[in-house]
């Protein structure tokens, strides 16, 4: 994070060019990054925001890259049995599994915020 701040500061002071989006910072292999960011985001329904699970499913944030690949490839080729994950792993390409491993390994692990419950107000 610090480094990112620094590079933004540097870019600004030297060239006065601001990255206006997360994507714009990233000129190399752009489509892969896009694709993996949105694909990884679809894992959040079960594994929590940016891979930080509220419990009951594994936390993927900051997970060891090789371990992620080993598990997913195991689900994919059937050598590791699973209840649900084989139905996802078999649908993913090897390079997607590797890119997801990279993506999640780079996410910061933290305790996720629980959605704010509120008693039913009677409308709708």
């Amino acid at each position: 994070m610090k480094r990112l701040h620094l590079s933004i500061a540097l870019a600004c002071s030297v060239t006065w060019i601001m990255p206006l989006s997360l994507y714009a910072q990233d000129n190399d292999a752009q489509n892969i990054s896009h694709a993996i960011t949105t694909l990884a985001a679809s894992c959040a329904a079960c594994h929590g925001p940016q891979g930080n699970s509220l419990g009951g499913t594994p936390t993927l944030a900051a997970l060891n890259k090789d371990y992620f690949i080993q598990r997913m490839q195991g689900f994919k080729n059937g050598s590791i049995s699973s209840t649900v994950m084989h139905h996802h792993a078999k649908g993913l390409k090897d390079e997607e599994i590797t890119a997801l491993a990279n993506y999640f390994a780079l996410q910061q692990r933290h305790t996720p915020t629980v959605a704010p419950h509120q008693s039913f107000q009677g409308a709708q």
Partner: peptide
Amino acid sequence: TDQEGDYAQAWVQNIWADTLT
């Protein structure tokens, strides 16, 4: 199964958190 019942509870907690925080 009961196990998938637990997963379904995890699913709903996580999708709520992803959507509402």
